[in-house]
Design a binder for these strands. Structure first.
Ligand SMILES: [Mn+2]
Ligand SMILES: [Mn+2]
Ligand SMILES: [Zn+2]
Ligand SMILES: [Zn+2]
Lengths: 121, 121
DNA sequence: CTTCCGATTTAGAATTATTCTAAATCGGCC
DNA sequence: GGCCGATTTAGAATAATTCTAAATCGGAAG
C-alpha cells in the first residue's frame, strides 16, 4: 500500500459510483496531490490484483472500477447512465442455470445488464 | 444484404468460432475478394444491428462475433482459449436470481465466463 | 544519519482496436 | 444509359491503455 494506491482507493471509497480511470484521475487532481494518469492505471491494476477492487466492463467502453467486495453484477440504467450494483438472491448460483459441460470450473464470471428503471417518484 | 455483408456472414457461418473482426478480414482475403477492413467493421455492425449476429466482449480484448441466434452465454476455456456457447437450462431466467429493483426492465444482458474444462480424453 | 536498492511513480511516446473522412463505386430504378 | 442514395474503400484520426526509461521513494543496513 503506497501513498498513491491509498489515495486511489480512498477516492473510490468516497464515491462508489463506478468511475473510469480518468474520472479517478480528475478527482485526485482536484482534491489532492498531482498524481499521474499512468500511476492511476498502475494503482487500479495493483488494487484489482489484490482483490480490493473490481474492473467492470460494459461492451467496449472505458473500464470502470468498483469497490463493492460482495459478489454482484452491474445494471446500467439506460436513461441516466448510472450503474447499479445488483446482488444475488439468497443461495442462488448463476451457474446452476447453465448447461455447463461436465467438470467445467468457473474462475471468473462477469454479468452486465442494461435496461430501464421506472422514473423516481 | 450487400455482397460484402453476405460474404462476412458466410465466413462467420462456415466456422462458428467467435472470430475477431481482424480474423474475419484475414479469412476473407484468403478465400475470396479483397474486402477492406473498414468494410468488415461496417458489415459486422450492420449484421449486429439487424440481429443476425452478436458482438461478444471479454474484458477489453478485441470484440468477437457470434452467429448463434439462440440466447446463450460465453465460456472461455483458459487453457485453450476456445470460446464455447453455453445454453440456459430449460425455463430458466437469470434475472430471477437477481435482486433487481422493482420495475426494472432488462434490455441487454451479457454474461461471460472464464474457467477450465477437464482435459479431453 | 547516510547509503543503498528494489519498487514505484512519472511524463511522454507507443500501441492498437475501432471509428471517421471523403472520394470512388455500386446497384436498383427511371 | 444516366441518376442517386447507400455502401465500400484507403487511409488518417481517435482514444483507452500500455510501455519506456528516467526520476523518486522509502524502508533496511551500516
Ligand atoms: Mn460486457
Ligand atoms: Mn466482459
Ligand atoms: Zn459494483
Ligand atoms: Zn456465441
Amino acid at each position: 500500500m503506497t501513498k498513491q494506491r491509498r489515495e486511489v482507493y480512498t477516492v473510490l471509497m468516497k464515491n462508489r459510483d463506478h468511475p473510469t480511470a480518468n474520472d479517478v484521475f480528475r478527482r485526485l487532481q482536484r482534491e489532492m496531490s498531482a498524481i499521474s494518469l499512468a500511476t492511476v492505471y498502475n494503482c487500479l491494476d495493483a488494487l484489482a490484483e489484490h482483490g480490493l477492487i473490481n474492473q467492470v466492463n460494459f461492451d467496449r467502453e472505458p473500464s470502470r472500477f468498483c469497490v463493492n467486495p460482495a459478489p454482484h453484477v452491474h445494471f446500467r440504467d439506460a436513461r441516466t447512465g448510472v450503474i447499479h450494483d445488483i446482488n444475488f438472491k439468497e443461495g442462488c448460483q448463476i451457474t446452476d442455470l447453465l448447461e455447463l459441460p461436465d467438470g467445467a470450473e468457473v474462475s471468473e464470471l462477469e454479468l452486465t445488464i442494461s435496461g430501464d428503471l421506472p422514473a423516481q417518484t
